[in-house]
């Protein structure tokens, strides 16, 4: 088995062992969607146009909180430093974590799509939408994983992470909300939103892979 595969499997195992943490991220996302649905229903009769915004703000916040947690255990136990000293390339270490985080987030997001399908009475489980969610998740999680790794030992990181990540994710948020709106036949303009989303995902994935080794060099 190649070391890269071994690291990815290790991270997936870790994510599974930490399933309580991921479950709480999923619970957070569920509560967020329910609260939005409830609060907006009080204010306006037609909540459907708000759906893309509800989904993506939930996904981003859940991803940031969960991503911030995902490195906490490793930095506490010191296994992260051990991994950095091992002959495995830093890029592989990063990719392992990012892939595990993307998979865990996709599970959470799929559950939210099902929930919102019921709550908002709109079919959200379509191939087009799943592709959009996948691309958006890759873009967001690759960036938040990088930031989470680097800030793992910092104090106040739980508050800091959203403050740092969200401004950088503005293009992704615009592209994702608009692309989701377009796929739901909501008014979203005619710009190639999925292309913007893809460009952002490639941008963040490539930059994170390039910058991670420099950030963790000891």
């Amino acid at each position: 088995m190649s070391p890269a595969m071994a690291v990815v499997l290790k991270d997936l195992r870790l994510a599974w062992r930490d399933r309580a943490g991921w479950a709480s991220a999923g619970a957070f996302a569920t509560i967020a969607v329910l609260t939005y649905s409830f609060a907006f229903d009080l204010a306006t009769g037609d909540v459907r146009p708000l759906l893309p915004g509800v989904l993506w703000t939930t996904f981003l916040f859940a991803g940031i909180f969960a991503g911030g947690q995902s490195f906490a255990r490793e930095s506490e136990e010191g296994t992260f430093d051990a991994l950095l000293l091992s002959p495995v390339a830093p890029t592989v270490i990063y990719l392992g974590k990012a892939i595990a985080n993307v998979i865990a987030m996709l599970v959470i997001e799929f559950a939210q799509l099902l929930l919102a399908t019921i709550l908002f009475d709109t079919n959200l489980v379509s191939v087009e939408l799943l592709v959009i969610v996948f691309i958006g998740t890759v873009g967001a999680v690759s960036l938040t994983t990088l930031l989470a790794t680097m800030s793992a030992t910092m104090r106040g990181r739980a508050m800091l992470l959203p403050v740092m990540a969200l401004p950088l994710l503005v293009p992704l948020l615009i592209g994702a909300v608009r692309a989701t709106g377009a796929s739901l036949n909501l008014e979203a303009g005619t710009a190639p939103w999925t292309l913007l989303l893809t460009v952002f995902a490639l941008w963040s994935a490539m930059l994170s892979v390039l910058l991670f080794p420099m950030a963790v060099e000891r």
Binding site: L143, L146, L147, M150, M164, P167, L168, V170, P171, I174, G175, L196, V199, F200, W203, L207, L211, M214, A215
Partner: peptide, 17 residues
Amino acid sequence: VFAILGALDIPLVMFSV
């Protein structure tokens, strides 16, 4: 690293808005 990310994010932000 964050500052470099931010600087390279600016064109994307301009473009998207």
